[in-house]
Nucleic acid binder design. Sequence first.
RNA 1: GUGGGAAUAGCUCAACUGGCAGAGCACCGGACUGUGGCUCCGACGGUUGCGGGUUCGAUUCCCGUUUCCCACCCCA
Length: 439
Amino acid sequence: MIKAVRGTRDLLPPETALWNFVESAVRDVFRAYNFQEIRTPVFEDTALFSRSVGEETDIVSKEMYTWDDRGQVPKILADAVTPEDSARYSYQSLTLRPENTAGVVRAYIEHDLWQKGLSKLYYIGPQFRRERPQKGRYRQFYQIGAEVIGPASAGSESPARDAEVLEMLATLLDRLGITDWNLELNSVGCPNDRTAFNEALRKALEPVKDKMCADCQRRTVTNPLRVFDCKVPEDQPIIEKLPRISQFLDEPCRAHFEAVQAILKSVGVQFVLNDRLVRGLDYYTRTAFEFTHGALGAQNAILGGGRYDGLSESLGGPAAPGIGFAIGEDRLVMSLKESAEGVLRKPDVYIAPLGPGMNAEAARLARELRRHDLVVELGDESFRLKKSFEAATKAGAKYILIVGENEVKADAFALKDLAKGEQVSVPRAELAQRIQGAR
RNA sequence: GUGGGAAUAGCUCAACUGGCAGAGCACCGGACUGUGGCUCCGACGGUUGCGGGUUCGAUUCCCGUUUCCCACCCCA
């Protein structure tokens, strides 16, 4: 038997109702903040991701689904592509998107969206990373994300954008009934700050690294920032004494970060500062954040994001500061209190044709009722009435409508409330109103 | 990619030291030919994840493999 491949899964009803519940809440909330939907391709030129996410990140170095395809390096990327790149991509290398920010920024550049001032875009869709699967981590997973990007003159660089995005996320989670979230906030500064900080960190680690765990010794060389992620208890006293990024922020970055916090306080969004929070993707600058939720095990990050002021330029586009986030939809659905059954819309009425020739009449009635925005399930004239009742009950229908010879003659139909057990005869013309009234 | 645990009916799980592969729920039918839920009766349902090995005999022991789960790495 052929099965869904490792790390992928089918989303079946009724669980899909939960996903729709989430997505329609997302569309509602985002609309109030004037975000509009963008849909970008599921695969892109490989160079897009290595340039933006970062060649040295885990995502690019070992988690991408990449293959060679016939084609050429697209013009839009030509300026950003080095000679070594074009040799490497003589057959165009394509990659299933491991995240969606790069694609959105690519589209922003390609369609000259800077001309429209500030762009506020959101997306919902599958992403792909070749990681070892576990709970809340799949190889095809779904992200809901949004980006605010535009010329600085349109306010894209303002701390007001950061705060607005964070407040929107708090609103969304509350609206979904997820109340026990925690917002962790940090600033990772500008590229200059990070260079200085990395320098200082290496210097501070040099004399103590021998006392640290094997992972940390490796991180000291490859990516000193990641030492802050260490969970080994013995290393904590050492880590506590290390310099913090906050001490290295230049004046504009520090002021920006403080302004974000001030607005959050003013709108009443709770947060905690976490100067150990570092983001894994290269393009992040200044504000970095994460919303966590306790019930998710090791994968406790329900969403993450931050500012990426230099990303557009590094892809050959105009200066276009931006901030965005990605919600792990799989994880979000897992942390919902709602049950799939709870958000599922059950049939308002089950129509039970009774006896030969009744299917046609039942179909007419179904068509009529569905025009009134009722959810109608239709049985079959071959069913015994008992079977129709069982089917109606199993489907969770509110009413059952019997369509038999007697009813057709009288042009009035037996309508029974399945929960209350009350049955009445209702003239055809009043059926829709009668059923709607009970909703 | 590393380490550990698990895999038996559609679902949740049993099966003693290696000896006929079972139960509950679900599904289908009947008791009841125009009235469901409750009850009773019956039927259906299996390559014990897959492949090999040991054995008279393997769901059980061994090896390999796949997938899921837990943790690491990392991230959403």
